[in-house]
Structure formats: structure tokens, C-alpha cells
Amino acid sequence: MDLENQKRIKDLAETHGNENVVVVLGGAEAEASGLAAETVTAGDPTFAGPLAGVQLGLSVYHITEEALKETFDADVYEEQVGMMEMVLPVEEIAAEMSQFRG
């Protein structure tokens, strides 16, 4: 994950409290989404950025995950994201994401 983004997330978690921050991803691909999820939960696996060795344990979802989708206005979701479900490897992403939730 971009180092500047890691810094922003770290600061926001400090400001609002880890339990109050939820990260929502829009990644194109499963592995990269998993890496982002790992970074905001267990720490930066590449040990390159400000989240290296920092276990924020934030809640993290991909925008296409069922559990998250249910909380949105269905029409808005359909208009903004709907078509991408035909494009993205949705199931693969969901499987990858579930690994980073207890």
C-alpha cells in the first residue's frame, strides 16, 4: 500500500480510535486487496511503510462483499458499483478478505 496512505490511516486511527475506523477497499484484484487488508490489520507485510510492525486491527471490507453491501441503499450500490460485479473476481476477493477478520 502507498506509504502516504499508510501514514494517513495510522493518524486517523490514533485520532478516532481503532475500534471506530472502518476501511473500505475497491481493489481490482484479490491478492492486492488482501495485502491492503493485512496492512491495516496485522501491519505492513512488506515492512516498507509507517504501518510496518503496527497491528491496528481495523475492520476492513471490500466494497463488493455481501455483508457490507447489505448496509447500502441498493439503488445507489447498483448505480455506482453494480456492473463491476461482472468484472471483478468477486468471490476470490471475498475469500481473500475473510482471512483478515477474526
Partner: peptide, 11 residues
């Protein structure tokens, strides 16, 4: 693909 952007033309 390895960079996480997927197959852009195919998408």
C-alpha cells in the same frame, strides 16, 4: 496483474 491492478484491458 502482479501490481494489483488486474488485467486492465480485459476489465
Amino acid at each position: 496483474k502482479p501490481a494489483g491492478a488486474g488485467d486492465v484491458p480485459e476489465a
